[in-house]
Nucleic acid binder design. Structure first.
Lengths: 178, 178
DNA sequence: TAGATTTGTTTCAAACTTGAACCAAGAGTC
DNA sequence: GACTCTTGGTTCAAGTTTGAAACAAATCTA
């Protein structure tokens, strides 16, 4: 199969995407390092926790929502825990799992940092887009993310998308599948 | 000024973008590490060099085109040089500069890796987009990149966009501005 | 032209990421 | 219940990134 190279349009799109992505991540990291003393990724961890029921999530689920590896998350949570922004708890129903919980201090830090962060996201991204483009952005990357998602799950296991993950994060025990 | 939070549409777009971006970069890194023994960034360095006149570029210009910091590039080039894919040369016109040159072996490695890389870019991104979306992608990120570009240049210097960079990369001396 | 400033690049230590290996606990099988 | 397989999480060493500091060569200025 001879390679189907990128068309000129695709090339331009790809280059623009990569350039903007590097610049965007740099801007986010700079701002958050400045205002909250942490890289963007760590902020995302806090943000995702803050929206979970009871502000708690199993490590694996958290890694899944943030789209990073478990080991990367382990590092992040260890650091955030050292700083008192997150706490680890054991899961009562599955002794293997550990639950990351956003502490009050973590919530406070998050709330202090959020306005600046949003400001940066606006200034670098949304202020430059028309409402239509916001929609296009969502459509494009939702579809891309979905594609990459459904690929990963250990090769062709007839993986059923609904009913996965026994989820311990809430204070309720799992649905008692017996 | 009370914070203007993101609208639901913007939130969705931002999340989708971040998720897809993490997944995309992971996919690129995995594929290139696998097939070429280097992370995506290093591949980009080689690729950009291969397109420069005489396959050579000043470190600063290279960093600028790849959109990374100079120190990050120093590391990358050092590694690529150790592997014989890139060579450093001194600039005759400006003894401070060093020029990164793509070696024949570097070109060969690049050519071997390119098909797989393009395949990945297609499979993860372009195969999921309509031609219209490719255009939207380009427009959105071109404008974002431009915005972030024009911000960086040391605050409000009446920086003239044309006639910047004395450029030594070619074998010609600079335009003799005297 | 000495002195001050800017520009191009590297260095270095601390921080972060990767991926394979490891450990423990839940599930499935006989 | 012993065996095997899978799942949840961490560990560890090697690799990469960051940002401030250090250098050296150009450029500017009086």
């Amino acid at each position: 199969m001879t390679t189907r190279w990128l068309s000129p349009e695709e090339q331009r799109a790809w280059r623009a995407y990569m350039a903007a992505t590097h610049l965007l991540e740099d801007a986010m990291d700079r701002q958050l390092q400045q205002d909250a003393g942490m890289p963007h990724l760590f902020y995302s961890v806090l943000a995702n926790l803050s929206e979970a029921p009871e502000r708690r999530l199993r490590m694996t689920d958290l890694a899944e929502t943030v789209k990073i590896t478990r080991s990367r998350l382990t590092y992040a949570v260890t650091r955030l825990e050292r700083d008192g922004l997150v706490r680890r708890e054991d899961c009562r129903w599955d002794k293997r799992s550990s639950i990351a919980v956003l502490t009050d201090e973590g919530m406070a830090v998050l709330e202090r940092a959020a306005p600046g962060h949003v400001e940066t996201v606006r200034g670098t991204l949304f202020d430059r887009l028309t409402p239509a483009q916001v929609g296009q952005l969502e459509e494009i990357f939702t579809s891309v993310a979905r594609g990459l998602q459904d690929e990963a799950p250990e090769a062709g296991t007839g993986d059923v998308p609904w009913r996965r993950r026994s989820s311990c994060p809430s204070s309720q025990p799992p649905p008692a599948s017996s």
